[in-house]
Structures are given as C-alpha cells and as structure tokens.
C-alpha cells in the first residue's frame, strides 16, 4: 500500500476522482492545499506529509509550478516535474520543442514588440491566430482576419503591459473540421482521446462548453503524441491535435495539468487509475 498525495488549490471533480480511485485501489490518499502550505529553505522532507508521490494538480499554473520547485527541493517525487511544467506552460517554448523534435506542428511566428508584430502579420498575411504565450482555456486566443481588429488587439496588448504581453505568438490557421482532438498521454502511452467540437465559433475547449466525443487512437496519433510527450520531458499530459486537411495530424499544444472530466465520461480506460499506476511506478523505479 502506498500513499498518494494530491496537491491542489481548488478541489475539482478530477482531484476527487483521483482520490476516490486511489482509495479503491487500496492506497492511502492525502490532499494538500497549496494555498495553505508553507515551505522554506530550511524545510525538510518529513516536515509536511506529502506521501510517497505527489500529483500536482493546481489550477493556477504559476502556483503549481513554484510549488513543484519546492517539492523537488525537498526530494519529494512529483508528477509532472518542474522542467516539464515549465516547458508546457509557455506556448512559445512548447512550439519550439515540438518543431525541434520533429513533431508536426502549425507554423508559428514570434515577435517581441508591437511594431514588429504588426510587420510580421503584414508579411505573413491574414488570417492568422494570436495567442498569449501563457494562458489556458482558450482565453486571449482569437483569429485575426483584418487590419483594424489587429491594430486594436495590438494596442490592447500594449496598454495591458503584462510581463508577457509584448511577446507575440502568431500561428497559421489550420484548415480543419470544426473540432480538435484532446489526447491524454501517461508515460509512453496514449490512454484516451476525444474530439472537442466547437459550439459554432473558433474555439473548441471543453472548459468553454465544447462537447466531448470519443476519438479512436490511431497509430499516427500515438506516434506523434509520444514524440510530443518526449519533447517536453514526459509525464501525464494533455495533448491537443488538429486534423490538417493537407498534412494530417498536427499538435498545437501540450498541457501540464490535464483536465479529464469530459474525457472520463466517454473513455474506455479508467483515466484516474492509469494516472495513479503511473505515479506509483514512477517512485518504484
């Protein structure tokens, strides 16, 4: 019997499913709220009970990332690793790694000032998708189709003046059916995949109400998902794919703290069970 620790900042259905599944499998579980935890350079491994292995499940990316750094400092095994969370949390870094590792990915362009972003869009042409380098649930993602909207968006980014607002991430529009695919990888396996259909608009995120439908895991999908997982360092990941009319599957995003309540409703495999087994095998190695 092992003890699984779930670090959270908002207890969602996923965290409850993981807890319930671990108990069913005969393991002890413990949940630790990152918001009410204190760690210091003087902390020792046994000061807080983190069990045998931690599944880091914070909804806040930066909170989870920094908490993971602390866990690794304490030599507590944690999934995913800091390095993986760091890479997946930044779309620019993810895109570069996917390309570097030969994973089919949309053409993506980067600019580092508003002026140069405008020049770049002018050169590449419309339509083009603008995305924040950090952010989830489809926020801030929109297709730019004309000069007026583009100028307004760039101006808004200049005014917002967040630390990442002057990093421009622009991506080609993929000609695809009105859906994308979310695959979950656990180690070297794709354990489930689903189509996420748009609700008549550009975005397909389940968080936005996208409708889940099971997707067959093909050899092509498996191959590129495993390659993508390797590119960011492996672990438990949510991989987003699009069906390009010409190139076949392309991967546009790799997510670190995967949400799976939508997929769990339609998946053949028991997703929480696969995640817990992976975590336990990780510490047994």
């Amino acid at each position: 019997m092992s003890k699984i620790c779930i670090v959270f900042d908002r207890l969602r259905l996923e965290e409850k499913m993981l807890q319930e599944q671990a108990s069913k499998m005969g393991h002890d579980t413990i949940v630790v709220d990152a918001k009410t935890s204190q760690i210091s350079t003087e902390s020792k491994k046994g000061d807080i009970d983190f069990g045998d292995v931690v599944l880091e499940r914070c909804v806040s990316y930066f909170r989870g990332l920094h908490f993971t750094a602390c866990l690794e400092f304490l030599d507590v095994p944690v999934i995913n690793k800091y390095d993986v969370a760091d890479k997946c949390g930044n779309k620019l870094v993810t895109s570069l790694l996917l390309k570097k590792h030969g994973v089919p990915t949309p053409k993506t362009y980067f600019a580092f000032s508003s002026e140069e972003a405008a020049n770049l869009i002018n050169k590449v042409g419309f339509p083009i998708v603008i995305k924040p380098v950090i952010g989830s649930w489809g926020r801030g993602i929109l297709p730019l189709r004309d000069k007026d909207t583009t100028e307004a968006i760039i101006e808004m980014r200049d005014i917002a003046d967040g630390s990442h607002d002057r990093i421009y991430y622009l991506q080609e529009v993929i000609n695809r059916p009105p859906r994308d695919i979310r695959a979950i990888t656990v180690g070297n396996q794709v354990i489930a995949a689903m189509y996420r259909k748009s609700q008549g608009d550009f975005k397909t995120n389940i968080a936005l109400g996208g409708d889940p439908e099971i997707c067959e895991i093909t050899k092509e999908m498996e191959d590129i998902c495993i390659k993508a997982s390797g590119a960011v360092g492996g672990g438990i990941l949510g991989i987003d794919l699009m069906e390009d009319e010409k190139r076949g599957l392309v991967i546009h995003e790799v997510n670190n703290t995967v949400e799976f309540k939508g997929l769990a409703r339609v998946a053949k495999k028991n997703i929480p069970q696969e995640m817990i087994n992976f975590a336990l095998n990780h510490v047994r190695k």
Binding site: R10, S60, R63, G135, S136, W137
Partner: peptide
C-alpha cells in the same frame, strides 16, 4: 471567499 479566476488558471 473563493479566489477569482486568475490569468494563469487552466491546464
């Protein structure tokens, strides 16, 4: 009171 949704929230 619950935290409001942050810019870095999500997957």
């Amino acid at each position: 009171p619950a935290e409001s949704v942050g810019e870095d929230w999500g997957e």
